[in-house]
Each structure stands twice: as structure tokens, then as C-alpha cells.
Write a protein that binds this DNA or RNA. Structure first.
Length: 462
DNA sequence: TCTGGGGTCCTAGGACCC
DNA sequence: TCTGGGGTCCTAGGACCC
């Protein structure tokens, strides 16, 4: 028996925890560069704003209807996510953290009524964190996912749906009321093809012949059929497995045509990717640079993979990886061309120390590990980019736009809400200074927390 | 007249997830 | 003018091994 717990409009809910005035109002959270909508409060959904909507198409309407738009604040969401997972993890010895706002729990054999247990989870999360969640329960992960979908359909409902608690006729009717595309693992392509075969609902899919579907679609779809029948095929992944590849990429805040700026941006992505590489205890033996050209018609051109470079020996060293990436950029660079985004992929990842060393190359200097450890400690304490290679540059005019970001309430002392009599909280103005590199904010003595003395947005601290 | 059987590794492409 | 940024798994086919 599995439970899937999923936060409702998670990013919006996180913002509301620290800004209760957003409660009851239509609120959306935007992707990086304030490009499109990635989270909507129920009030915003009521205006018909779709998930993923390009924000520039909605900005005017939003202003008229006083819809609040916020840039995404991942430091805040990641911190609340960790707390959410800790609370939910206390409900079962076996937990799979599936994404930033949802997890599976194994609730088999727990000598409790699963439905009541689900209500207890909701209450504990609401009391401890102020976040709304829904709980779905079923005999397989796919059924738990679907049950969660049912629980979310009725925002004023109990927030818990347990397929195991329903009489067979009700269970059947519920599956028949769900579109086949609502089933976890059925994307738009497969949904269209299944509709053509006369399969329209979750019940149709459950009752279809697994072998026939396997021939046409592969083993993945066959497993979904069995899962819908209550035969658990997908195991609970309780240990986060190390990533097989690490990508760091961004669209630029404005197009870039200078080689040095391109290299600086890529260097910054290498730094982020390498930090994640070391955090999971891996080393990389190959690196690819991604450069994005101007858009192609209505859509962003994909990030084309340019020159992959294999390394003689696997490494965790930001400087070494940056050197390779910088050279690839120089090789691929076309003068006069405008670039809209860039990124880096680290590949061929293995646990540190697992790969044999190159017979003809000296062992890596032992101080590399120590140097990287210091780098990571400083940046973990003071913010990513506090200590960095000069190659990353200082002005970073390509940096992404984030015009509506809320403060880092839980991870930055300077961003703690401070309410003074007769004043707005001091933080409200600081949120517009996101272009000021962290070292400036950290260096600021508390007296400079006065918003009237904050540097204006876009000003250079150097 | 008659020409096996069992593998691995790599890549590209297609689907899906949040 | 303006449309994100991560990931996973599966399959098929080709090259190669003994």
C-alpha cells in the first residue's frame, strides 16, 4: 500500500507562508527569467491562466485583475521542501522523495487505517509548516498518484482519497471518470494514440490487454496496466541514486554576442554543475557545452550539444572543468552571432576514487580535494558564487531577469522580515536588489538594511 | 551439401516526469 | 521584446567480441 503526498500549488504556498497578505489573492510564480507560469494559486487558476503560460501574454491582464506575480525563489522552496520531507518521513520508515513537493510513503502493514493516517499527515504539515497537501492512497504507486489527482480535484474536499477504501463499484466508476491522460506515465503522445484505439479512460486502460499494448508501446505501458490493476510493478526508491548526468543551463537575460561573456556565462554554469557533482560524491569524465541560438519561429530552439570532450582522468575540479569548457566555447564561437542561452553537461559520472588512474599521468594533486572542499564550504555558508573563478566575471550583464523575487526568508539573516512601527517590512525593497552579488549583501553592515540606502537595481557594486 | 550462437557497448531517438 | 530547467527509462540498430 502506497501513499503519495503532494503539496498544493507548492511555490505559491511557500510564498504565502512568509507573506500572509497573499492569502486569498490570485498569485502566480514565474520560471527563471520570469518567462512562464510554473505555479498558480486556485484564485489564479480561476482566471484561466494555464500552467506554463508565457508570462508576457498575461502580464497586462494580470495587472488589471491585480494578480500577484512572483519570480521563483528556489532557495526558499528547497528549504521548505526539506522540512516538508522530514515531517512526512516520520510517518513511515520507507519514503521516496519524488520531487521538490511530493513523496511516496510505504504505508503497508502499519496497523493504522490508511485514510485516517492520511488525514493525520495533512494536519501535521498544516500545523508545522503552514503548507496545504493532498494525500492519495492505492495498492501501487500509479494508483496512489491517481488517488492524489482525485483528492486534488475538489479543493474544498477532505484532501485525502484512498482507492483501497472504496467499494468495487465506486472504485470502477471513479476510474471511468478519469481521462486516460490523467494516468501517471501517459503523456500527450500516448494519450492521443490510445484514444485512437478506443481507450479513453483510466478504466479502459486498466481493462486493456497488457500483451497487445506491450507490442505496440513497449514494456513501460504494460507496467502501467498492471499497476492500475493493483499489481505493484514500480518499487519504492528509498535511496536517492546519484545522478547519471548533471546539467546546468540558463537562458540569458539578454542576448550575448561577445566571446568573453559567453565564456563567463559557461564558467558560471560549470561552477554550479561542479558543486552538484561534488555534493553527490561523483567525479566527471566527460563534459559537453550547450549553446542556444536565437529562437526558431514560435519556439525556443533546443540547446544544441556542441563538442563533447572526454577527460583523460575523471575530475571534480571546477578549475579544470572550466578550462575545458572555455576552450570548447572558443572553438564553437561564431563572431557576429547572437546567443540566447548556454549550459554545461557533466557526463560519465562515477563515484569519487572508483576509476583507475591514467598510467602515464601523475596522480591529481591531493590538494585539489581540499581546495574544492573549502570552495564548497564558503559558498554553502555565504551563497553560491561568493568565492569563484575570475573567469565567471563580475558584472554578468547576461544574468537572468528576476524582477519580482521574494527574500530568502529562511536562509539569509539579512532577509528576515523586520517590521518597524509605521514602516513596511524592510525586506520589501531589498527584494529588488537581486542583481547585487551576494558578497555585497553580506558585507553590508546591518545599518545598511535601510531600504533607502540599498543600491538601485542593476547598479554595479564595483 | 553443408556456413552458430551468445554476448557487450555505444548512440540516437522517442517517450515520459516535475 | 518578452516562452524554464532540470531529469529518467526504453528500444533499435550497428559495430564489435569469442
Amino acid at each position: 500500500m502506497f501513499a503519495l503526498i503532494d503539496a498544493n500549488h507548492f511555490y505559491v504556498a511557500c510564498e504565502r507562508v512568509f507573506n500572509p497578505r497573499l492569502e486569498g489573492r490570485p498569485v502566480v510564480v514565474l520560471s527563471n527569467n520570469d518567462g512562464c507560469v510554473v505555479a498558480r494559486s486556485p484564485e489564479a487558476k480561476a482566471f484561466g491562466i494555464p500552467m506554463g503560460a508565457p508570462w508576457f501574454l498575461w502580464r497586462d491582464r494580470a495587472r488589471r485583475h491585480r494578480i500577484v506575480a512572483l519570480s521563483s525563489n528556489y532557495a526558499l522552496y528547497a528549504d521548505l521542501s526539506a522540512r516538508l520531507m522530514a515531517v512526512l518521513g516520520s510517518f513511515s520508515p520507507r519514503q521516496e522523495v519524488y520531487s521538490i513537493d511530493e513523496c511516496f510513503l510505504d504505508v503497508a502493514g502499519l496497523a493504522v487505517n490508511p485514510t485516517a493516517y492520511g488525514h493525520a499527515m495533512r494536519q501535521r504539515v498544516a500545523r508545522g509548516l503552514g503548507l496545504p497537501v493532498c494525500v492519495g492512497i492505492g495498492a501501487s504507486k500509479t494508483l496512489a498518484k491517481l488517488a492524489n489527482h482525485v483528492a486534488k480535484q475538489d479543493p474544498t474536499g477532505p484532501g485525502v482519497y484512498d482507492f483501497g477504501a472504496q467499494a468495487p463499484a465506486i472504485h470502477d466508476a471513479q476510474l471511468a471518470a478519469l481521462d486516460i491522460g490523467a494516468v501517471w506515465g501517459i503523456g500527450p503522445r500516448w494519450a492521443a494514440q490510445l484514444h485512437q484505439r478506443g481507450l479513453h479512460t483510466a478504466r479502459d486502460l486498466r481493462d486493456a490487454d497488457p500483451k497487445t499494448l506491450r507490442q505496440a508501446f513497449g514494456v513501460v505501458l504494460e507496467r502501467i496496466v498492471w499497476e492500475l490493476r493493483g499489481v505493484a510493478c514500480l518499487p519504492l526508491d528509498t535511496l536517492p541514486t546519484p545522478k547519471q548526468q548533471i546539467i546546468a543551463s540558463r537562458t540569458f537575460g539578454r542576448p550575448v554576442d561577445a566571446l568573453e561573456e559567453l565564456q563567463a556565462a559557461v564558467a558560471q554554469h560549470v561552477a554550479r554543475a561542479a558543486t552538484r557533482l561534488r555534493r553527490q560524491g561523483s567525479q566527471a569524465q566527460a563534459l559537453q557545452v550547450l549553446l542556444r541560438s536565437p529562437r526558431d519561429g514560435a519556439h525556443l530552439a533546443p540547446l544544441p550539444i556542441t563538442g563533447m570532450q572526454r577527460l583523460a582522468t575523471p575530475t571534480t575540479d571546477t578549475a579544470e572543468l572550466t578550462q575545458v569548457a572555455t576552450r570548447i566555447v572558443a572553438e564553437q564561437y561564431q563572431p557576429g552571432r547572437r546567443y540566447h542561452g548556454a549550459g554545461v553537461m557533466l557526463l560519465d559520472l562515477t563515484p569519487v576514487g572508483s576509476a583507475p588512474r591514467d598510467l602515464f599521468r601523475a596522480a591529481p594533486p591531493p590538494r585539489t580535494a581540499a581546495r574544492m572542499a573549502v570552495l564548497d564550504q564558503i559558498n554553502a555558508r555565504w551563497g553560491q558564487g561568493t568565492l569563484r573563478l575570475a573567469r565567471e566575471g563580475f558584472l554578468q550583464p547576461w544574468a537572468m531577469r528576476q524582477n519580482h523575487r521574494s527574500p530568502a526568508y529562511t536562509t539569509d539573516w539579512n532577509a528576515l522580515p523586520v517590521v518597524r512601527a509605521g514602516h513596511e517590512p524592510a525586506r520589501s525593497k531589498r527584494s529588488t536588489t537581486s542583481r547585487v552579488p551576494p558578497e555585497t549583501r553580506i558585507a553590508s553592515p546591518p545599518s545598511q538594511g535601510d531600504p533607502t540606502r540599498s543600491p538601485p537595481p542593476g547598479s554595479t557594486p564595483l
